[in-house]
């Protein structure tokens, strides 16, 4: 078990190192950092001095080692455009993105699993067919279209909910939250629906097909032959077996919800990491882009680790050493 965790951690560290390398390479290939930092009237000598001060004259591996060393301590340098430490910018934006992403993931998972189970049990029911048809729309419509559609209906026509921003936020330590004010909560509704809708339909369709598969298994038939009530078979025997593959996909989806909230954040002008990244791209703000890249990789690695641990929790075959070799 401990070896299993350690190996997952080591793999994660390797992935992060590889991503850090790609992020670091951007500095060399996306424009000259010195040209970005000094004004046009700077002399060649000024430039050379800055170059030495920033350590750009040192060999590439040494520079990379320093970059990784700083990154581990949360130091990604200074934003070219805003002239503030990148880490401070990211910490400022993090709560907005995390609140949006976690609420979306909760919404998608709870409703998705619920509807999926329902659609599997009532395979030929009218409501189940309606749900499946609507889910097809969710899978095929692009996120920004759903967002714009929701804005049109609920913000423009009905005027029930705001169309952009976070509303009022409350500061708790370094964390800002929109969960404690009415306008904050109202502002969350549309972005959460938009970001979660695709994941919801995906999870729902996955749960349904996995559940139908499991319901055909021998042990379900045997449970019926033992006279176990059908509800117990569905929720005790079938659902837990269904969740193992679902956790993988849902986990990866949680990663992409946090990492790629970019479209939703842009549509709703949400002051999160996604919109920070979009601005950084527009201004070739390489330190911010690099930090965002490493952050995304970090989120995926952590989520994957959690998924692996959830497997062990769900599936006793993975506990104890020998089964892990498979």
């Amino acid at each position: 078990m401990i070896a299993y965790i350690l190996r997952s951690l080591a793999q994660g560290a390797l992935v992060l190192l590889a991503v850090a390398f790609i992020a670091f390479s951007m500095f060399r290939f996306v424009g000259d950092p010195v040209a970005n930092m000094v004004g046009q009237e700077a002399t060649l000598q000024d430039r050379q001095e800055l170059r030495e001060r920033l350590g750009l004259e040192r060999p590439f591996p040494v520079q990379f080692a320093i970059f990784v060393g700083n990154a581990v301590q949360g130091d990604f340098g200074v934003s070219y455009r805003q002239a503030r430490p990148v880490s401070a910018l990211m910490v400022e934006r993090l709560p907005a993105t995390l609140e949006l992403a976690i609420l979306s993931a909760l919404f998608a998972t709870v409703i998705g699993v619920g509807f999926g189970v329902y659609a599997a049990i009532r395979r030929d029911g009218f409501l189940a067919n309606v749900v499946m048809t609507v889910s097809l729309v969710g899978v095929s419509l692009p996120t920004f279209l759903i967002g714009i559609g929701l804005i049109y209906v609920f913000a423009v026509e009905l005027r029930w909910l705001p169309s952009f921003g976070r509303g009022e936020t409350v500061r708790i330590g370094w964390w800002t939250t929109g969960l404690l004010t009415e306008s904050g909560l109202k502002s969350l509704v549309l972005p959460v629906l938009t970001l979660g809708f695709f994941q919801l339909t995906l999870i729902m369709r996955l749960v349904r097909s996995e559940m139908l598969e499991v319901m055909r298994a021998d042990f379900i038939r045997f449970a019926r032959a033992r006279g176990i009530p059908e509800r117990t078979i569905e929720f005790r025997h079938a659902l837990r077996n269904t969740l193992i593959p679902v956790v993988t996909i849902a986990g990866l989806q949680l990663g992409s919800i946090i990492a790629f909230a970019i479209v939703t954040e842009t549509v709703f002008q949400w002051p999160g990491l996604g919109s920070l990244f979009v601005q950084a791209v527009q201004f070739a703000d390489v330190p911010v882009m690099a930090a965002y890249l490493v952050f995304v990789a970090f989120v995926f690695v952590v989520v994957n680790l959690l998924v692996d641990l959830t497997y062990v929790l769900l599936d006793p075959r993975l506990r104890g050493g020998k089964a892990l070799a498979k």
Partner: peptide
């Protein structure tokens, strides 16, 4: 009572 062919798949692996 009923006994099936394959004991490997007749039992729920998670309980």
């Amino acid at each position: 009572g009923m006994i099936f062919q394959d004991p490997l798949t007749s039992l729920n692996p998670l309980y």
